[in-house]
Amino acid sequence: MSRSLRRGALAATAIVISIASLSACGAGNDAQTLGVKPDNAATSVGTVKIQNAMVITQPKLDAEGPAVVSAMLFNNGSKAETLEAIELPGTNAEVKLTAASGSGPITVPAGGSVLIGGKGNASAVIEKGREAAQDGNAQEVVFKLSETGDVGLKAFVIPATSYFAGYGPEEVPQKPAEQSPAGTPTGSPTGSPTTTPGAPAGGDEASSATPSDSASASHGADH
């Protein structure tokens, strides 16, 4: 084999090895475990990283009710971070934060992470969901942390369908149940007569006399 051919073969081998190495890096823990999608909002400030930030609304476009903020918060610092609030600039909507345990603040431990959204996880509920965000828009969301301060990004607004159904609002408006007409009797009638048919209405002794007794009394009077 000539020297030029050997050089070409070596160069091709190097390119193949480089591509294989990049592919292996792309299949690392972050790509598989976090399920990061390129069209979901992510940002980092200092030691805090936020990934997969979304505003998830009711599954039906015409349905009223709350929406939620869903995101993954990472804390690479040496001190725990408390999520003090989430704000939606440009709206008057309030976001109610609830820890996974149901009490206390949402805390991102040092060197750990917290998932907001989904059953059994911390939650961030937007009470007036339809007023705050519209499907298809990119809504500015600010996470206010105790140590890092404000971390803002623009999150896509999507309905709670398909993959996102399990991370959407738990409170979905239902059709009101039909109520029975007012004034429907619920108990048995009261004050029904207790006497049997044909029985005397009075309670005196004369009315309870038998015909034979009456006949005997009349016969004695004749004598």
Score class of each variant (00 low, 15 high):
Ala24Asn: 14
Ile158Asp: 06
Asp213Trp: 00
Pro169Met: 01
Pro211Ile: 11
Asp30Glu: 13
Val95Gly: 04
Asn75Thr: 09
Pro159Trp: 03
Pro200Tyr: 05
Ala24Tyr: 14
Arg7Pro: 00
Thr186Ala: 03
Thr33Gln: 14
Ile106Glu: 08
Ser218Ala: 12
Gly112Thr: 01
Val45Pro: 02
Gly90Ile: 02
Ala182Pro: 14
Ala155Glu: 05
Gln51Asp: 15
Gly198Ile: 13
Val108Lys: 12
Asp135Gly: 12
Gly120Cys: 04
Thr161Glu: 09
Gly77Leu: 02
Ala14Ser: 14
Gly35Lys: 13
Phe164Asn: 11
Asn52Lys: 12
Phe143Pro: 01
Pro185Arg: 00
Glu81Val: 08
Ser4Pro: 06
Gly183Lys: 11
Pro89Val: 02
Ser216Ile: 13
Lys60Leu: 11
Leu34Ser: 09
Asn137His: 14
Ala67Trp: 07
Ile126Tyr: 06
Ser70Tyr: 04
Ala53Gln: 07
Glu178Thr: 12
Val157Gly: 10
Ala9Met: 08
Gly202Tyr: 04
Met1Asn: 15
Glu87Tyr: 04
Val142Asn: 05
Thr190Ile: 00
Ala138Trp: 09
Leu34Thr: 14
Val151Arg: 07
Asn76Gln: 10
Ala182Leu: 15
Thr194Met: 04
Ser4Leu: 13
Met72Ala: 10
Asn75Gly: 10
Glu171Val: 04
Val151Asp: 05
Ala41Asp: 06
Pro109Ala: 05
Ala217Asn: 14
Leu145Glu: 09
Pro59Asp: 08
Gly187Thr: 01
Ala67Met: 07
Ala41Gly: 08
Gly166Gln: 05
Gly152Thr: 11
Glu147Met: 11
Tyr167His: 02
Gly46Gln: 07
Arg130Asn: 10
Ala215Gly: 11
Ala12Cys: 09
Leu88Arg: 12
Thr196Arg: 14
Pro211Met: 11
Gly166Ser: 07
Leu145Arg: 10
Ala209Asn: 12
Ala217Pro: 05
Ala85Phe: 02
Asp150Ile: 05
Thr98Lys: 07
Lys96Tyr: 12
Leu83Thr: 08
Pro193Tyr: 03
Ser2Tyr: 08
Gly202Phe: 06
Ser23Asn: 06
Asp30Leu: 12
Ala182Ser: 15
Ala206Pro: 05
Glu84Phe: 00
Ile19Lys: 00
Gly220Thr: 14
Ala67Asp: 05
Asn121Tyr: 09
Asn121Asp: 07
Gln174Pro: 00
Ala100Val: 03
Leu22Gly: 06
Ile86Glu: 04
Asp204Gln: 04
Lys79Ile: 08
Pro197Gln: 07
Gly202Asp: 13
Ala133Arg: 01
Gly117Val: 01
Ser78Phe: 00
Lys144Val: 14
Ala27Trp: 03
Ala124Leu: 01
Gly149Asn: 11
Val125Trp: 00
Glu84Cys: 01
Ala99Gln: 03
Ala93Val: 03
Glu171Pro: 00
Asn137Thr: 15
Leu88Gln: 13
Thr98Ser: 13
Ser212Gln: 15
Asn121Phe: 12
Pro109Cys: 06
Pro66Gly: 09
Gly129Gln: 06
Gly202His: 07
Ala122Asp: 02
Ser218Asn: 10
Ser123His: 01
Ala100Ser: 12
Ile15Tyr: 03
Pro200Gln: 09
Lys119Val: 00
Ser44Phe: 14
